[in-house]
Design a binder for these strands. Sequence first.
DNA 1: TTTAACTTTCAGTAATTTTTGAACTTTTGA
DNA 2: TCAAAAGTTCAAAAATTACTGAAAGTTAAA
Lengths: 168, 168
Amino acid sequence: MELSEGRLKFIEAWGKLGSEWGINRTMAQIHALLLISPEALTTEEIMEELTISRGNANMNLRDLIGWGLVEKQHRSGERKEYFYADKDTWNIARQVAKERKKRELDPIIKLLNELSEVRGDDKDRNYKTFRSSVKDINKLAKNVNKTLETMLKAEESWFWSSIFKIFK
Amino acid sequence: MELSEGRLKFIEAWGKLGSEWGINRTMAQIHALLLISPEALTTEEIMEELTISRGNANMNLRDLIGWGLVEKQHRSGERKEYFYADKDTWNIARQVAKERKKRELDPIIKLLNELSEVRGDDKDRNYKTFRSSVKDINKLAKNVNKTLETMLKAEESWFWSSIFKIFK
DNA sequence: TTTAACTTTCAGTAATTTTTGAACTTTTGA
DNA sequence: TCAAAAGTTCAAAAATTACTGAAAGTTAAA
């Protein structure tokens, strides 16, 4: 396979993966493009590579910065902004985990705690099932939360060697 | 909070969570409803609770069965089908992990292996960056894969106690 | 068989999400 | 201070995804 074909496939696959995980396709594609670009790119260059509009490029770059996956660079003597993606996969994984934890897991845990307070008739089977499901999900969520927190603090090498030790 | 309000909030939250993770809202809501229902429900009952059409209910139930999260029951002397969700959170987590691994991680690993074969000019910075990114992502994907495989085999108690040992 | 109860399918419609592009704002150098 | 070169915003359009409802298909009891 040629490099140019490989690059296209990579961008396409990253975009698809993103959309399967609730991240918009273009945002994931821009990220993919930056991941395989040695130098920071301008908005113009990104627009051209992916054939997207200026507004689209601008908005999704903004979101990527919000996710902590891309940073703006400016070069002295130039008005243009350049965009650069951290290439360290471990940082990317942690950053995504961190954002999703904040945006999704934390609110869910908050809700589950509220739902744990629901009181009802202990003879009501609906109540018993509700209570038991909420309790179990809460327990899982808290385990996931703890694991994520450790992961967020961990060094890559430490994290994987620990995992490795456990999982044979 | 009243049980009825709690049930609604739970269904709503589960639906939202699903849609943030690329699972359609209705499917997640049906799953939520079944999770807090002590008895198996009929299509009619689900349609009514969630105010959705027959076609919608049918299709999403089918998908839930495809994900291994819901099973059909039939009762002798009755023509109707009843739907029941496994309430064991650990099974649910494993089932989702299993399906997403099969549908998404496995194909990505396959592609990454192909992309590892791309050859180019070692002096080309584009090539070097491409190569390095693909390699790193491949490594991460394989670690995730290994961890998932272990999780899929594990008993809940074993899994979490192992995690717990490592992560303080 | 027939029939009634139930399930499945799918074309058309609706809802949601994403993208565009043009107007507007900001920055910078002359 | 101005004008050119960028960056930003957002209403409208396009694309995608989900839902409906009615017709077609299936099953099982009589």
